[in-house]
């Protein structure tokens, strides 16, 4: 029996719910000396996992785009479609929560000179462009090639965004995990880890479900063509 993506996504949602609950009730508060808006700091527990999930989605978008463009893999096209939608949703979550947290903590929701913020937002806009653009066109090799090309070139921004906080720490905080300079409280780290795992499961489930949807759409189109031919 194959595992349905929807079931995996629901599992991820449950994990995200657990993360939320732990973040609000169990994770320690932060010091008022370190943060201007200590209550708002709890946005962190979904903001960071959604950024991580978005990066995963953009990575899958890249893989799908490459394999469609060079290998004409149908599976890869379905991955492109599903991961662009996943990247859009999680990217918007991250940008939304980030703007609000920025307003609370920095006094401004955005910083045009911060490379990481802007390249991440650009990736989110790219996925919006891909989702809307694809829906405006009939399916075909021209549509797929065009949007796969955008998906491939847009991905250049991903490693750039990752490196940006190591090279240009301007306003957005640098990495606090997986570095020797990180200083995250262990309980916070635990909740964050649960969040990261949950969002990973969530994004995988959604991408699986999305790929199945594209397969269904293609099947529907084939049936419609067959029906029209047999009606003649």
């Amino acid at each position: 029996m194959s595992i349905r993506g929807e079931a995996v996504a629901l599992l991820g949602l449950a994990g995200a719910g657990l993360t939320f609950w732990l973040g609000m009730t169990w994770a320690p508060s932060v010091s008022i000396d370190a943060f201007k808006a200590p209550e708002a700091q709890r946005i962190f527990y979904w903001h960071v996992p959604s950024a991580w999930a978005a990066m995963l989605a953009f990575g899958m978008l890249f893989v799908g785009s490459i394999f469609w463009f060079f290998k004409r893999s149908e599976w890869a096209w379905r991955l492109h479609v599903a991961s662009s939608e996943a990247g859009l949703a999680t990217g918007l979550m991250c940008v939304w929560s980030g703007c609000i947290w920025g307003a609370a903590e920095w006094g401004v929701p955005w910083d045009w000179t911060d490379i990481r913020l802007n390249t991440f937002a650009m990736l989110t806009l790219l996925s919006l462009y891909l989702v809307l653009g694809r829906r405006s066109q009939p399916d075909g090799v021209e549509t797929r090639d065009t949007f796969a090309a955008f998906g491939m070139y847009g991905f250049v921004l991903v490693p750039f965004t990752y490196i940006a906080t190591r090279l240009w720490q301007i306003r957005h905080p640098g990495p606090v995990v997986a570095t020797s300079e990180g200083s995250l409280n262990s309980d916070m780290g635990t909740v964050l880890l649960i969040g990261a795992i949950s969002f990973t499961v969530l994004i995988i489930g959604h991408v699986m479900a999305g790929m199945r949807l594209t397969k269904l759409e293609l099947r529907l189109e084939d049936l419609q063509n067959r029906y029209e031919e047999e009606s003649r």
Partner: peptide
């Protein structure tokens, strides 16, 4: 700070739910 927190999570929950 709490208002910001609620606004942020409401938006994220809304996005997840809609998706």
């Amino acid at each position: 700070g709490q208002t910001y927190l609620i606004a942020a999570y409401l938006g994220m929950i809304g996005a997840l739910a809609l998706w």
